[in-house]
Amino acid sequence: MVFCYKIAQDAYVIAAWLREKDQNGTLVGYFQADTLTESEEDIAQLCEEGDFGLVLGL
């Protein structure tokens, strides 16, 4: 049961952070490609080429 609580808590914290950034107008900056480091771009490219789902750099 503790594991499920931790997942729910993590999801809540992420959702709250996203909501805050959206409300203050800064969320869009996190989705701009030029904000990634070179290594993050490499990882994103690998994930895009494969079938690994969505990668969020939060």
Rank of each mutant, 00 (worst) to 15 (best):
N24W: 06
D10Y: 08
F31N: 06
V2L: 14
Q45W: 01
Q23K: 15
E20Q: 11
A33F: 02
V28A: 15
L36A: 01
I7F: 08
M1N: 05
D34A: 09
A44F: 04
A44Q: 03
T26N: 08
L58I: 05
L56T: 09
T26I: 11
F52Y: 15
E40A: 14
G50M: 06
L58F: 10
Q32G: 00
R19V: 01
N24L: 07
E20W: 11
T35N: 03
E49C: 03
A33E: 14
G50I: 05
F31A: 10
M1E: 14
I43M: 00
W17I: 01
C47W: 02
S39P: 00
I14V: 12
K6W: 11
F31E: 05
C4G: 10
D22L: 08
N24F: 04
E40D: 13
C47I: 10
E48H: 01
L18Y: 06
G57T: 03
E38L: 04
I7C: 14
D42Q: 07
D51F: 06
V13E: 15
E40C: 04
A8R: 10
D51E: 14
G50T: 12
L18I: 12
G50A: 13
G57S: 04
I14G: 06
K6I: 14
L27Q: 09
G25H: 04
A16F: 12
E40Y: 00
L36H: 00
Y12G: 01
G29D: 08
T35P: 00
E40Q: 15
E41S: 07
D51H: 06
A33L: 12
Y30V: 05
D10S: 13
V13W: 05
M1L: 07
V2F: 09
N24Y: 08
K21N: 08
A33C: 10
L46Y: 04
F31Q: 07
L36I: 01
D34H: 14
G25Q: 08
Y12R: 08
L56K: 08
L56A: 11
K6P: 00
E41H: 02
E40V: 03
V55M: 11
A44C: 05
A33M: 06
F52L: 13
D42Y: 00
A8E: 13
D51I: 09
K21P: 02
R19D: 09
L18W: 02
S39N: 11
C47H: 05
G29F: 09
C4R: 13
L56D: 07
L58P: 09
D42T: 07
Y30C: 05
M1G: 10
E41N: 01
L27G: 01
G25T: 03
E49M: 13
K6F: 14
A15P: 02
D22T: 10
Q23I: 06
I7W: 09
G57Q: 04
G50N: 14
A15V: 11
S39K: 07
G57P: 02
A16W: 03
F52N: 07
E48I: 06
M1K: 06
